[in-house]
């Protein structure tokens, strides 16, 4: 699986509490708006992948960027979420969209 061979060590590990950066830069982004600014926990490290934000404009996307799956509680994403507190949402966030959050 060469596509996932890390080009540098992942900064976060499983269980780290992280916050998605709340920013709205122009351009092609893979971080959905609804998750920006939200806090979750690293569920797994996916590997390093060419940066889609560069590839979208014809660049190589290199160096590769670390990609993580981050787990969020639905109630932390949507105010008024209509479901039990244990419901979860998980998605993939590139490392440059994450900052470390304080443990809660």
């Amino acid at each position: 699986m060469n596509a996932a061979a890390p080009s540098f060590d992942p900064y976060y590990i499983l269980g780290d509490r992280v916050r998605v950066i709340s920013a709205h830069p122009p351009g092609h982004r893979r971080t959905p708006h609804y998750i920006r600014g939200k806090e979750g926990v690293v569920e797994r490290y996916c590997g390093a992948f060419p940066n889609p934000e560069e590839r979208a404009y014809g660049f190589s996307g290199l160096p590769k960027r670390n990609l993580y799956r981050v787990r969020f509680r639905q109630m932390d994403i949507w105010s008024g979420y209509n479901g039990p507190v244990h419901d979860l949402l998980e998605l993939e966030i590139f490392e440059h969209w994450l900052t470390r959050a304080e443990a809660s």
Partner: peptide, 27 residues
């Protein structure tokens, strides 16, 4: 998600975790 699942005829008990995966990147 629970409302969507209900519309598909899938009733998930409250005691069961609904875990949504947004397939937004390379997985």
């Amino acid at each position: 998600p629970r409302a969507v699942l209900r519309e598909f005829g899938t009733l998930v008990p409250e005691s069961v975790i609904v875990r949504v995966h947004d397939s937004n990147a390379d997985m």
